[in-house]
């Protein structure tokens, strides 16, 4: 299972969160929303200007910018 940065993920690609490298408030916010190591995510799509990105996790949809996705490492399925 290759480990990539979330920004590099394709649309409809799934994976498992490997690490959140953000500290401080941003890190806390990301984790509060359920993005912790072990969470399964699928990239649902991106906004028309390619940013933000929409994720599917735990049965809900979360959107965040690519600059936030940079702090998230994912082990992708394929």
């Amino acid at each position: 299972m290759p480990r990539v940065n979330m920004r590099q993920m394709r649309s409809k690609q799934s994976g498992t969160i490997a690490a959140i490298t953000a500290a401080g408030e941003l890190g806390r916010r990301i984790r509060d929303m359920g993005l912790v190591p072990g969470t399964r995510i699928t990239v649902q799509g991106r906004a028309p200007l390619y940013d933000p990105v929409a994720l599917r996790l735990m049965g809900f949809t979360l959107t965040l910018r690519n600059s936030e996705a940079d702090y998230i490492d994912v082990e992708v399925d394929d």
């Binding site: 990301i30 965040l64 936030e68």
Partner: peptide
């Protein structure tokens, strides 16, 4: 600042 928002169904 960061944008982290939930999209409701």
């Amino acid at each position: 600042t960061p944008f982290v928002m939930e999209l409701p169904p």
